[in-house]
Computed example of a mutant assay.
Amino acid sequence: MKDMELLVQAKDKALGEVEQKLKELEGKVQKAENVAEELREKAKIEAQQHSSEILKHRTAFIELVSNQRQLDADMGRALRQVEATKREV
């Protein structure tokens, strides 16, 4: 009977240790999930900022192309006016 009590106590102790380790692992898993969520949020914010920067650069590029075309047209008109003035002179 005493052996059975010792065996039950040993098993209870082992079970308590297993439960403690399980709680520790659950805590670590929770921390890891929190870190993963924070990283996801940070990545999402950085992606939005990057997208915003790309949109700004795209807008600036389109404006530059438009200005270049306008300058080309203005230069063409100026050249034609110079040639017309030369012919008149």
Rank of each mutant, 00 (worst) to 15 (best):
K42Y: 02
D72N: 12
A47W: 03
E37H: 06
K31I: 04
R58D: 15
M4R: 10
N67A: 13
I54V: 15
K23A: 11
G27Q: 00
D12E: 13
M1C: 11
A14M: 08
I62S: 11
K28Y: 04
E37A: 02
G16C: 14
E5G: 07
I54C: 09
R87V: 06
L71V: 06
E38V: 01
T59H: 06
D72R: 05
E53A: 03
K13P: 05
L39C: 09
E63Y: 04
L55W: 06
Q30T: 06
Q81P: 02
S51I: 08
G27R: 00
E38N: 04
L6I: 07
L15P: 01
G16Q: 15
R58Y: 05
L25W: 05
E83I: 00
Q48K: 10
R87C: 05
K11D: 12
I45L: 10
E19D: 11
V82C: 00
E53K: 06
R77F: 05
V35L: 13
A84R: 04
T59A: 11
V65H: 01
M75D: 14
R40I: 06
K11H: 10
D72E: 14
Q70Y: 10
F61Q: 10
V35D: 14
A73D: 15
V18L: 15
E37C: 02
L39W: 03
L25V: 11
E63K: 05
R58P: 04
V82I: 01
E19G: 02
E88G: 01
R87Q: 02
L39T: 01
K31M: 10
K2Q: 13
S52L: 13
L15V: 12
R87Y: 02
R80A: 09
R58H: 14
H50Y: 11
A10Q: 11
A60R: 02
N34E: 11
Q48I: 08
Q30C: 13
Q49T: 14
K56P: 00
Q20T: 07
K44L: 09
L7I: 08
Q81E: 15
A10R: 06
M4E: 15
V65A: 06
H50D: 14
S51W: 07
K13F: 03
N67G: 07
H50V: 10
L6T: 09
V65Y: 01
D74A: 06
A73C: 14
K11S: 09
K31G: 08
K56G: 01
M75V: 11
R40L: 07
H50G: 12
K21D: 14
Q30H: 12
E26Q: 11
T85G: 05
L55R: 13
K42H: 08
Q68R: 09
L39K: 02
Q20L: 12
V8G: 04
